[in-house]
Nucleic acid binder design. Structure first.
Length: 181
DNA sequence: GGTGCGATTGCA
DNA sequence: GCAATCGCACCA
């Protein structure tokens, strides 16, 4: 069972590429999460946002390494989970090479029951993700990604990121990727 | 040690 | 339009 899912996991090389490339490639991939009781939740990603490097003013890594954002500086393949507004968790996929802080925020997916989880807080709730998963590996942990349904370029729309208007010129960059309806 | 606010959501 | 709710980044 574990070995079976292991074979389907996307490999380290998937994550250790430029953040924008990974973000685009995450669309349509299947997010999987095993619960303590053995249940496996699955859903395909439909909306993500890239946070790219130490100069990205919208990124938590903009002010350098801290206890919270430390996983962003690790090699791609880890989960970075944090709490916002004191109540909602946000799940990120750490990307790129060691020392270069980057991650992709997962903002929307088809949820386990077939409905949709639209919004980062709703996504983490649907997949029972909280800070216990912070720093866990997508390569070996209780949460991982599988190939899913590849999305053609014509179905991909790019926009500015949500909720980062404070980020100056970085706010207007089209780092958000969604599957067009 | 104190403070201001956020990569959001749900409800009036 | 705005309250909820708390960890954390920053200043003293």
């Amino acid at each position: 069972m574990v070995s079976g899912s292991r074979l389907r996991r996307l490999p380290a090389s998937f994550y250790r590429r430029p953040t924008l490339v990974v973000a685009r490639d995450l669309l349509g991939r299947t997010l999987c999460r095993t619960l303590p009781d053995g249940t496996v939740l699955r859903g395909n990603l439909v909306e993500v946002e890239a946070y790219d490097g130490p100069k990205d003013r919208a990124s938590h890594a903009f002010r350098g390494l801290t206890a919270r954002n430390r996983w962003m500086f690790e090699p791609g393949g880890l989960a970075y989970v944090y709490l916002v507004y004191g109540m909602h968790h946000c799940l990120n996929v750490v990307t790129g090479e060691a020392g270069y802080p980057a991650a992709v925020l997962l903002r929307g997916a088809t949820s386990p029951n077939g409905a949709s989880a639209s919004g980062p807080g709703r996504l983490t709730r649907a997949f029972d993700v909280d800070r216990r998963l912070d720093g866990t590996s997508f390569l070996s942990g209780p949460m991982w990604l599988e190939a899913g349904e590849p999305v053609p370029d014509r179905a991909v729309r790019r926009t500015r990121r949500i909720g980062v208007d404070y980020a100056g010129s970085w706010a207007s960059r089209h780092f958000r990727f969604v599957i067009a309806k």
